[in-house]
């Protein structure tokens, strides 16, 4: 009962669905801007955005990109370093999890945008405050996914460990953590895009460089095509980071991917 084989054209349609959609979207956008003669400062056409992108020097892009990536990636890495051990502790001690979980939820449900100015006041306008802002927004999904994964370890695997009377740290290290890997990576994928958001929010509040700063600065000078160029650049970087989490997972833990990976 195999489904009927798809025609070549249909196959390609499925394969490049998102690319085709994106191209159509850009073409329609361009047409609307040209035909309706929308002024550039309201909605720039894709072609003007592209020319704005190339009118900015490459080295300037790299400086801004470097600043944003630095904050986002250091914040993200720090988040992992805090979140995973925290999750381990919370899985091993019910008391700790009861104590900390509400605190984490409160931190998570407080809008980072609202807290960012306060953090800048307290920690100053340098990288540390921007990194802290990024951390605050990224670490919750990692804690939750790691905790969930470790707690979902099948009872039989735990019984295997118990029947061997293995020390508890090996139960954690050799059973619970590997079991949680797919969960953790789901959390990491969510988190890495949040890391970019965190870095940009922080740059909006206080920064002298970075893509977020670049967008804000371009808008305030009414260089709207340039702001859009920055925005698309940022989105592209975000997508690339999201993808690289997947690549890292496929490289280090190929067994943890679903048999037929959908994305």
């Amino acid at each position: 009962m195999n489904p009927k084989p798809k025609s070549w054209l249909k196959q390609q349609c499925y394969r490049f669905a998102s690319v085709i959609f994106f191209i159509c979207f850009i073409v329609i956008w361009e047409l609307i801007c040209r035909l309706a003669e929308v002024p550039n400062y309201i909605l720039p056409s894709p072609s003007s955005i592209v020319s704005a992108f190339f009118s900015v020097e490459f080295s300037r892009w790299m400086t801004h990109l470097g600043a944003t990536l630095r904050v986002a990636l250091i914040g993200f890495a720090l988040s992992i370093l805090i979140a995973i051990p925290l999750a381990i502790c919370m899985v091993r001690s019910e008391l700790l999890s009861r104590t900390l979980y509400p605190v984490l939820v409160v931190i998570q449900s407080t809008p980072v945008v609202a807290v960012a100015p306060l953090i800048i006041v307290i920690l100053g306008t340098d990288d540390p405050s921007r990194i802290l802002i990024t951390c605050l927004i990224t670490f919750f999904p990692i804690v939750v996914s790691a905790t969930t994964g470790m707690l979902e370890t099948p009872e039989e695997m735990i019984e295997l460990s118990k029947s061997l009377r293995a020390p508890q740290y090996r139960e954690t290290w050799q059973i619970r953590i590997p079991y949680a890997i797919p969960h953790i990576f789901t959390g990491l994928r969510v988190s890495i895009t949040l890391a970019i958001i965190g870095a940009v929010v922080a740059e909006f509040v206080a920064a002298e460089e970075g893509l977020g700063y670049f967008i804000q600065f371009s808008t305030s000078y009414f260089k709207i095509p340039q702001a859009f160029a920055g925005l698309f650049f940022l989105a592209g970087i975000s997508l690339l980071l999201f993808k690289s989490i997947h690549w890292i997972q496929a490289w280090l833990f190929p067994w943890s991917l679903p048999k037929k990976s959908k994305y």
Binding site: E156, S163, R170, Q174
Partner: peptide
């Protein structure tokens, strides 16, 4: 639990992140 008892579980209860050889050696490693 005693050392001279081996348990075979309902579903094989293998660890999907280990190879066949690592799975069979898991009791010692663990």
């Amino acid at each position: 639990p005693r050392d001279d008892v081996g348990i075979v579980f309902q579903k094989a209860n293998l660890l999907p992140w280990l190879t066949v050889q690592q799975n069979i050696l898991f009791p010692l490693k663990h």
